[in-house]
Amino acid sequence: MTPAIGDVVTAVLVLSAALMCLAAGVGLLRFPDVLSRLHAATKPQIFGLIAVTLDVAVNNFTLGTVTLSVAIVAFQALTAPMAAHLIARVAHDTDRFRPELLVVDELGRANRRGDRGD
């Protein structure tokens, strides 16, 4: 009985991870500008990664596996926003975005006003 349940759990987690990766790819194609594509690039995979490593950690429940899984997820969750932030700032500073897609651009306004602190 137990292995069957384990298989079902594995199937669900792996499939949801795969779906998230597909969504990231499709988002890359369908979102209109760099800033929107960044959203597709950073978020779905974190969930996919959590699902997959959770499954690995549960199936092989040893201290080494669990700690390594935690480390993997933590690093991905910390580095993905960092990369996104770098790219987003470069995109905004070098005007590689489409202002007509924005409701407001308060960063551009602050930069023009020149009241940025740094």
Binding site: A23, F47, G48
Partner: peptide, 8 residues
């Protein structure tokens, strides 16, 4: 993740 995936 689900929300962005749905948007995509």
């Amino acid at each position: 993740s689900v929300q962005v995936a749905w948007l995509a």
